[in-house]
Structure formats: C-alpha cells, structure tokens
C-alpha cells in the first residue's frame, strides 16, 4: 500500500515519518484534551473545579459523590434522560434505517416514473434549515396534541435522507442487476427477492445507516428542545443543556458545575464505546457513501 514504505530506509523518509507523526500527535492532543478535561472535571468537587488546574486531578477524588449527585438530582431525572435518549434514538434509528434501505433499494434497482424527481426532492431536502421544518412541525403537532409525546421526537426522525443516499450507493455496488433477475427467473416476487436474497447482502450498508441514524438522533438537540417541555421527557442533550444554564445562571446553585461534566462523561462513554466496537461498519459504510459521492 505505502509507496514510501518501499524505500523505507532513506534518511529523508525517516525524518518525514518523525515529523508527520509529531504533527498528528499534536492534533491528537487537541482532540483528546477536552475529553480528558471532562474526566478530570467529573472527579472534582465544585471548589476544586475552580481552584485546581483544569487538566489534572485534584487531591480530593469526588467522582463517586458527583455520580451520586448526578443520579439523584431531581429524583433521579438523569437516569430518565438516559432512558429517553436510548428509547428515542433506537426506535428512530431502526425505523429510519429500514425506510432508508427500502427507498435506497428502489432507487438503486428499479427504473420507474418519477425517479429523478424524487431523488431531486430528497437531495433538496438536505438544504432546508431545521427551523424551517421543526417550527411548523411543532405548530402542526401541537394542533394534533402530539407535542410532549415520544412520537413528536420519533416520527420526524424516521426521515433520514442521507441514509437513503448511502443505501442507494451501497446497493448499487453490492447487488448486481443480474442477481435480482436470477431471482425473477426463479419465480420469486419482488419482495421475496428483497427479503431472501438482497437483504442479507446489504447488511453492512444497513448497519452503517443504523449507526449514523442512531448518532444523529442521539445528538439531536433542536427537535426535542422544541417538541418537549416536560423535563422528565427530555433526552440527555436537552436535559444537560438545561442543567448547564441553571448552573451558570446560579439559580440551581454553584453545586451543579461538576455535575454537568459528570453527566457529559456518563453520556459520551456509551457512544464512544459503541463507535469503537462498531468501527468496522461505519468505516466501510462511510467509505462507500463518500466514494460514490
């Protein structure tokens, strides 16, 4: 793979290797420090947060106390937020990934009237500012009495245009037309071909879209911010942001500063773990989408 590797012994090559690795290491420090800060901040008392150096631990190790506060504050509302986030994101992600897969399959493997128009619509949808959608959606759903329900967050999230494009590109590559025609010659109906031949072949793409949709929902802030106003329905993002503004405005007491960072730590650990475990999928899938583009 590496062309330079073939001349791996030249002095110039060795110098470049040191230099470039040093540059990447510097950027790694930049990437890593904020995460490290979360860890140290989550282990400190509020006094220490202000009085000790931010990028190292304080003598007084307060992580367990902070966790206890985090999970007991407002009758354990943080746990509720985590559960809400998991619920909203997983239902939305599974639905969105399935719908995107069906749609991507239709775009990749059929010619039909209106295909170009529909593709253009889906692509154009990416340009619409969130407020342009979420605010009228809020007004509509509140007319239907659906705001402040999980559906208000889940239903709009089932539309995931990037997933459609990714699946389209993936399926186009992964499943040949002849294969589908072989299924037709064998007498299988179109749905049967999809479920018994195609679906297993497009699993890697599906997994990627699932992960991307999951992350997109996990990260979503604006939609739940607008749709939900009962704190016990918030996902973590909205909840933590609210805790933070209470902390900073002083209304909830200075006590909350480390708790916010502890909450941040608790909520990013599972996502980062998931990312590390599933890296095989997202790396492959993002590649497919990116290359096709």
């Amino acid at each position: 793979m590496s062309i330079v590797g073939k001349s791996a012994h030249s002095a110039k090559f060795r110098r470049n290797r040191w230099l470039l690795t040093a540059i990447l290491s510097l950027y790694f420090i930049y990437t890593f420090l904020p995460l490290f800060y979360v860890i140290t901040a989550a282990t400190k008392s509020n006094q220490d947060l202000f009085s000790t150096f931010g990028l190292w631990f304080a003598a007084d190790f307060q992580l367990w106390e902070n966790l206890e506060t985090l999970f007991t504050i407002q009758d354990g509302i943080f746990l509720k937020w985590m559960a809400n986030t998991a619920y909203y994101s997983s239902v939305s992600a599974i639905g969105a990934a399935l719908f995107a897969t069906f749609a991507g399959y239709a775009f990749a493997k059929y010619t039909f009237f209106g295909k170009k128009l529909m593709l253009a619509l889906v692509l154009g949808a990416v340009m619409i500012p969130q407020t342009a959608l979420v605010i009228p959606m809020f007004l509509m759903l509140s007319n239907l009495g659906l705001t402040n329900t999980p559906l208000a967050v889940i239903l709009p999230s089932l539309v995931f245009p990037p997933g459609v494009f990714l699946m389209w590109a993936y399926i186009d590559d992964a499943i040949s037309n002849e294969l589908i025609e072989a299924g037709r010659m064998d007498g299988a109906g179109e749905f049967h071909i999809f479920s018994s031949i195609a679906f297993r072949m497009l699993m890697p793409g599906f997994a990627t879209v699932l992960i991307l949709a999951f992350v997109a929902n996990w990260n979503n802030y604006f939609l739940p911010l607008v749709m939900l106003n009962k704190p016990d329905m918030f996902p973590i993002t909205v909840g933590l942001a609210q805790l933070y503004s209470t902390a900073i405005s002083g209304t909830g007491g200075v006590l909350l500063f480390t708790v916010v960072m502890t909450g941040a730590l608790v909520s990013i650990v599972p996502v980062i773990a998931a990312f590390l475990i599933m890296q095989r999928f997202w790396q492959g899938g993002l590649g497919a989408g990116g290359v096709k583009a």
Binding site: P34, Y37, L240, M261, A264, I268
Partner: peptide, 21 residues
Amino acid sequence: ISFFLPYAVPAVIATLIWSYL
C-alpha cells in the same frame, strides 16, 4: 479513529465541554 471520535459526541455536550474550557 481518535480523530473521528469527537463526531460521536453530541454537539450539545461538545459545546458544554468547550465552554468550560
């Protein structure tokens, strides 16, 4: 992988962290 990881951090939380920093 480590350069990519911040992508998994929700924008809200990234913003909170940086505003502390």
